[in-house]
Design a protein around this nucleic acid. Structure first.
Length: 626
RNA sequence: GGGCCCGUAGCUCAGCAUGGAUAGAGCAUCGGCCUUCUAAGCCGGGGGUCGGGGGUUCAAGUCCCCCCGGGCCCGCCA
């Protein structure tokens, strides 16, 4: 391991010089060497002497003559800096990359362990909007990363097929005369969400008789039989299939679709409720405003206790959403004696099967032994998710395994909201999307806009390309642009979608990454097979910078393993691409002399290896030509 | 009222978890570079009280406290 070996060697040298805590860090500014130790600052305190002198003493005691990677140790201002023997270090870096190939950077830390990731979970009554896309892209990227680390990753998509939002759509079909066939050129999910749902909500707001009909429909859906139930099942299936098309377009894949109606029917809740009672975690309210309800006792929670206990069973005997979520969460942790049976729902683009819960299906997919259960849900659900987590603890389960991966929502810029026909208040800087009001930008709509824009660029550059090739390239550029835009932002920051900004194809964007990849391929394509990991002479600065960046991937993935943050991976992808472009512009490869040429070709080949891995982890489609 | 999150260049944001050497990108702007591996690129210029104030420390954008501004959450909805 290149960088890891370098760090280990620096630590070994420091220990040999009598430093017990080496405190080695990778330098941001390599002018101070590859790595540095701040041990002298720490020692200065206990020894009562100047860090500068201590560092000099440490450096003087280190003998680098036996080290093959480290060429010099220097003490500057209290730091002990380690410089690389680049003749050897560059060879080690390149050989590690080329011998590891597509596994480079994976520690295999997850081998034999299962992680459950649930994402998307969009109500099956409407098309996905850009806010949902953030969820999908975050969840899918997490799944890709954990899979790369060796985990057995199971991707779940929770389908709430029985709430009021479904009744709204059914009301439209049963009472407002909407045909089940969408107008030409309109997908079924768009028809349900853009037309039927919005209109139905609007009408029910002003017409109490419609609101009453909707309540009847809700009850009938939940009863498990009848016309509304049958209609609902069919609509859920059709909308879900369309939603999945959008998700697949974004590059996501799924293993299990868990239907809320089945979760209810399987009776997970009854078992969990008994356990909560046995644990003394719930109680029945005899009087007060919550009389007749069963409540979760939150008095032991440091923060939630201030807001009162949580209703789990309403006075009419039905469960609240949070009760069902607690039962479902317990199931994910493998704490339920019950398990679903599944039937094949469809197939992911990669050929793997997607299963859906089913009362009659024959497939059994046991959920057990997950070391972590990740739930990608926006920050507005932070409180309810914390309640779920707390309840898991009360059930005696290991709640630390249950992770609410919260992310901030996506909102519209004033300009885009106005384009959609909304008039923002003067004080409104951003406008939140709303499915009920039809105020949103659909994922497919945005991807289509991006594709048109990209196709125009492709056509200008490649007038000889076929229409199919232009279309396919445009599509991949569109996906790259959107995925990267949604992932490079930190999860706790609101994204204000500005379609003009997102249409940009230059700078720190997905298309920039794709372009860099295609450029690198051209060099390899024109080269022969001769390459050498041994530099003929001390590598130049541009070569070193690129090598350093490539050497960092294993450390980066270790950091992901503990931080779970995907943004640093997105940043790394841009930095790596940027370093390659600088190398590309400044360092000739094909035109170089024999030894240089072979060494630089090894660098380019290694870059393509590393960059392919990173693009795949982010779900950025690779393009051989652009 | 209680809780959580955000505040760094004109704009969008990194850096904060594990404090370390002159605070980094992208966009925008100004100026360069295509007979040479794809210019969706590269090079350079200008642009900063890191929201404000205290504190801890050899060292604070990073840790602690207070304040200010903005967002979100607190339903017998989901």
């Amino acid at each position: 391991m290149g960088l890891r070996r370098f760090i280990a060697e620096a630590e070994r040298l420091l220990r040999s010089a009598g430093v017990q805590e080496p405190l080695v860090q990778v330098n941001r500014d390599p002018g101070f060497g590859e790595v540095s130790s701040t041990a002298a600052f720490q020692l200065a305190k206990s020894l009562g002497r100047s860090p500068k002198l201590i560092a000099e003493e440490i450096a003087a005691r280190i003998d680098v003559s036996k080290s093959d990677l480290i060429s010099a140790v220097e003490a500057i201002n209290g730091y002990v800096n380690f410089k690389a023997n680049w003749m050897e270090y560059s060879r080690v870096i390149l050989e590690e990359i080329l011998s590891s190939g597509e596994r480079y950077g994976s520690s295999g830390a997850g081998t034999g362990k299962r992680i459950i990731i649930e994402h998307t979970s969009v109500n099956p009554n409407k098309p996905l909007h850009v806010g949902h896309a953030r969820n999908v892209c975050i969840g899918d990227t997490l799944a890709r990363l954990y899979r790369f680390l060796g985990y057995d990753v199971l991707v779940l998509n929770y389908i709430d097929d029985s709430g009021t939002q479904m009744a709204d759509v059914i009301l439209g079909f049963m009472e407002l005369g909407y045909s089940l066939d969408p107008p030409a050129e309109m997908r079924f999910d768009e028809y349900c969400g853009d037309v039927v749902y919005v209109e139905s909500v609007r009408r029910a707001e002003s017409d109490p008789s419609l609101a009453e009909k909707r309540r009847q429909i809700t009850r009938e859906i939940e009863s498990g039989s009848g016309k509304a139930f049958e209609l609902n099942s069919m609509i859920v299936r059709r909308v879900l299939m369309d939603q999945l098309k959008t998700c697949w377009r974004l590059g996501a894949r799924y293993d299990l679709l868990n239907m809320e109606s089945d979760i209810l029917a399987y009776g997970l809740w009854d078992e969990v409720f008994e356990k909560l009672r046995a644990a003394g975690a719930v109680y029945f309210a005899d009087s007060g405003p919550k009389a007749g309800c069963w409540l979760l006792d939150l008095s032991g929670h440091p923060v939630l206790s201030k807001e009162g206990d949580e209703v789990l069973i309403k006075s009419d005997g039905t469960t609240t959403y949070i009760a069902r979520d607690i039962a479902y969460a317990a199931w994910k942790l493998g704490a339920s004696s019950k398990d679903f049976s599944y039937e094949v729902f469809g197939e992911n683009p990669d050929g793997s099967r997607i299963y859906a819960t089913s009362m009659s299906g024959g497939a059994r997919i046991p959920i057990s032994g997950a070391v972590k259960v990740i739930n990608v849900i926006d920050v507005r659900q932070r409180r309810p998710q914390e309640i779920v987590r707390y309840a898991l603890g009360l059930l005696g389960l290991d709640a630390t395994k249950y992770v609410h991966y919260g992310y901030e929502v996506v909102a519209l810029s004033r300009k885009d909201a106005e384009r959609l026909g909304y008039s923002p208040e003067p004080s409104q800087k951003v406008v939140h999307m709303s499915g009920r009001r039809g105020l949103y930008i659909k994922v497919d709509q945005l991807l289509n806009m991006l594709r048109e824009r990209a196709m125009k660029e492709v056509r200008e550059r490649h007038p000889d390309w076929s229409d199919d090739m232009i279309f396919e390239t445009g599509e991949k550029i569109a996906v790259a642009a959107l995925r990267y835009a949604l992932i490079r932002q930190d999860i706790d920051k609101l994204i204000v979608i500005d379609t003009d900004e997102i249409m940009r194809l230059e700078g720190a964007t997905g298309p920039y990454l794709q372009y860099t990849y295609a450029r690198a391929l051209r060099i390899l394509e024109k080269a022969g097979s001769e390459f050498s990991t041994a530099p003929p002479s001390e590598p130049g600065e541009h070569e070193k910078t690129l090598l350093r960046k490539m050497a960092y991937l294993p450390i980066l993935l270790d950091e992901f393993h503990s931080s779970m943050l995907i943004k640093p991976i997105a940043d790394y992808a841009y930095e790596l691409a940027s370093e390659f472009n600088i190398f590309y512009e400044n360092v000739p490869v094909l035109r170089a002399e024999h030894g240089e040429r072979a060494f630089r070709l090894a660098i380019v080949k290694s870059f393509v290896t590393v960059f392919s891995i990173v693009l795949d982890l982010l779900g950025i489609p690779r393009l051989d030509f652009m």
